[in-house]
């Protein structure tokens, strides 16, 4: 175990509002990574755009802060060309479930060995309070003036339906259990989705810290995370929202295992020096 200090940036100006759940997630992630002993040089944090997506700027590590909705594609590719790196794709609910929804669906199918952390505040924070795909019915905003009437997006049900290899939900207000979930997710081989409930103090006055406390409960020890049907049942519960690891499938092969470049040679593709000239001239000669 390393000190989580290793990820600290020192005295920096953080752009989040005081009291925002993002601070806890930042802290918890640093704790989880240090507990796992992942060095900053061996980690890449990939994010999109939004409040949540600013997280790499408060982290001493490698990072790729790309475009809104697009954390998953570069994260997938980075892992594919250098599997020695731990890769985390992290953004907000609008970014991952709205703008990047198609990438999430296909990342589950592709199953790269990356961790996908979603700060789910049920609102668009950075753009000042419009509805997000997870905003609840009736949620009023300056744009959704009569309240949201779209069925809220259910990321857990989607992931379980697609037989994602790891599906969990956590709450930023609970440091210990969220840390444990993140440790399991990051250690898991394959695509791991962790949706983290995160209060937005500025733009979501409905789903507050208190609301999350009152409307969630932890899956208990008897929950069998290898049972997909049961996981789906839990995922569609709305009365109270379950937290914990819903589903795990350890049997899936990863994207990196399937792309073929590592079947004989484990050296990361990105660092490999391949002697191509001879093969290439043979290939050219064969084109006659």
């Amino acid at each position: 175990m390393m000190e989580s200090q290793i990820y600290e940036m020192g005295d920096i100006d953080i752009a989040w509002c005081p009291g925002c759940g993002n601070f806890s997630i930042l802290k918890i992630l640093k704790l989880a990574l240090s507990e796992l002993g992942i060095k900053p040089e061996k980690l890449v944090l990939v994010s999109g755009i939004g409040q949540a997506a600013k997280i790499p700027h408060y982290f001493k590590t490698n990072f790729f802060n790309g475009l809104h909705g697009r954390a998953i594609p570069p994260a997938t590719a980075i892992k594919a060309v250098n599997p020695d790196l731990a890769v985390i794709a992290e953004s907000g609910d609008g970014d991952m479930y709205g703008e990047g929804g198609n990438h999430l669906i296909n990342a589950i199918r592709r199953n790269p060995d990356i961790t996908n952390i979603v700060h789910n505040n049920m609102v668009y924070g950075l753009t000042k309070g419009q509805a997000s795909p997870t905003s609840q019915i009736g949620f009023k905003t300056p744009v959704q003036v009569k309240g949201v009437f779209l069925e809220p997006f259910n990321p857990l049900a989607l992931a379980v339906a697609l037989d994602a290899s790891f599906v969990a939900r956590a709450f930023s207000g609970d440091i210990e259990q969220t840390k444990d979930i993140l440790i399991e997710a990051i250690s898991h081989r394959g695509f791991a989705l962790v949706d983290i409930f995160q209060p937005c103090v500025s733009f979501n006055k409905v789903n507050t810290h208190k609301w999350f406390k009152e409307n969630t409960y932890y899956l208990n020890g008897s929950h069998d995370s290898s049972d997909r049907g049961n996981a789906f049942q839990k995922a569609i519960e709305t009365e109270k929202l379950p937290l914990g690891i819903f589903y795990k499938n350890d049997k899936k092969s990863t994207f990196e295992e399937n792309v073929g470049v590592y079947s004989k040679n484990k050296e990361p593709l990105a660092l490999r020096k391949e002697e191509r000239m001879k093969k290439l001239s043979n290939l050219i000669k064969s084109k006659r």
Binding site: F64, G66, I72, P74, A75, A80, V81, V261, L271
Partner: peptide
């Protein structure tokens, strides 16, 4: 030593390519 991946759409394709390139491929 080349990875060829059919992406879910062109948006993903180019974002993947830029990601792979960032990592050195």
């Amino acid at each position: 030593d080349v990875v060829v991946e059919q992406a879910e759409d062109e948006i993903s394709a180019i974002n993947m390519a830029v990601g792979a390139s960032y990592a050195g491929a």
